[in-house]
Amino acid sequence: MENYDPNMTVEELLYAIVEDETQKMHRVVNESNARLDREWEVGKAELLELKKIAVEKKRAKQAAAAALSAPLNDKENNKQQEKPSTEESKETKKKPAAKKGTAKSCPLKLVALSGPHKDEEFFIRPTLRVPCVIGRSKAKKYVDKGVSLNQDDQVSTMHGEFIFKSGQAMFVDVGSTNGSSVMKDGEELWLEKGHETIVPQDGSLMLRVGDTILKVEYCA
Rank of each mutant, 00 (worst) to 15 (best):
Y4T: 03
T102N: 13
K57G: 01
S156R: 00
T127K: 06
E46N: 11
A97Y: 02
F171A: 01
K140W: 01
Y15C: 11
Q201F: 11
Y15D: 14
I213Q: 08
C132S: 15
I198D: 07
K79L: 15
K109I: 08
Q62H: 07
K104W: 00
L68N: 10
V174Y: 00
K44S: 13
T102L: 04
G167S: 10
E187H: 12
V133R: 02
Q81V: 11
D202V: 00
W190S: 10
I163N: 01
T127V: 05
S148G: 02
A64M: 07
K109Y: 00
K184C: 03
M170W: 09
V10L: 15
E161I: 00
S137E: 10
Q168D: 08
V209G: 04
N77C: 07
A34L: 10
K184M: 05
S180W: 00
D152Q: 05
P96C: 04
V174S: 05
M183P: 00
K94L: 12
W40E: 11
L214R: 03
K138M: 11
I134V: 15
A16K: 14
N178Y: 13
A64V: 07
L48V: 05
Q81E: 14
E88A: 13
D152S: 06
H195E: 15
A220T: 11
V55P: 00
S176Q: 03
E49V: 02
K24F: 02
T157N: 07
G186D: 08
H117E: 05
N7T: 15
L207M: 07
S156Q: 07
H159C: 03
Q151H: 10
L205M: 12
V216N: 08
N33Q: 12
V10Y: 14
T22K: 13
E12D: 12
R208E: 07
I213H: 06
L128I: 10
L14K: 13
L189K: 14
T92Q: 08
H159I: 06
E217G: 03
C106T: 14
K93Q: 12
A112G: 07
R208A: 06
V182S: 02
Y4L: 15
E21N: 13
K140R: 13
V42S: 12
P126Q: 05
C132T: 04
A54D: 02
Y15R: 15
Q23N: 12
P107V: 04
V111H: 04
K104S: 13
S166V: 01
Q201K: 14
P6G: 01
C219P: 00
M1P: 12
S69G: 04
L50K: 13
H26L: 15
S137M: 05
M158K: 05
T177D: 06
L14H: 09
E196F: 06
Q81R: 15
G160I: 03
G160E: 01
V130L: 05
N30K: 13
G160H: 01
